[in-house]
Amino acid sequence: MLNAHLNFKLLEMCSKCGACFSICPSCVNLPGYDPRIVIKDILAGDWEKWLTSKSIWQCLECHHCLEICFQHYGFENAMTALRTIAAKRGIHPTQVKRGWDMFVKTSKLGDPALPARKKLGLPEPAKSGAEEFKKLYALLKEKKAKSGKTH
């Protein structure tokens, strides 16, 4: 399952390198956060246990690891792959689910604050593309159902 998301050859190199460890803000600041262990487990086929871990959501997607990586790959790909599988199984933080629900329902993560806008003398906000977005999302789901793809 992870094969679809990750390049194991590059990860093999990652497991021997770790150049990004000292630049990663989560590695430096959050005790116990160490993607090097996660990558070793992925290569050993023992990654299921990480799906329920808080660690995989502690990657801040700041792309520091990507930029310093000699392969332009980085930790973040491993973390994103695990998060995607976890989310598919419904194991994700409540706020991620709440954000997702609001997005697919309204096409946004919140509506413009109208009274505050008026007070500040701001113009009417531009129209949102919610209706068209919903149509597109329905088309995408239909297409996926036809092709049997799940992501």
């Binding site: 995607t84 989310a87 994700h92 954000g99 997005f103 946004k108 993560l109 531009a126 593309g129 068209e132």
Partner: peptide
């Protein structure tokens, strides 16, 4: 007119 959420990577791309 017509913009939606960009969308937010950590919420949408993960799913």
């Amino acid at each position: 007119d017509g913009f939606t959420c960009c969308p937010e990577k950590s919420l949408i791309n993960n799913i």
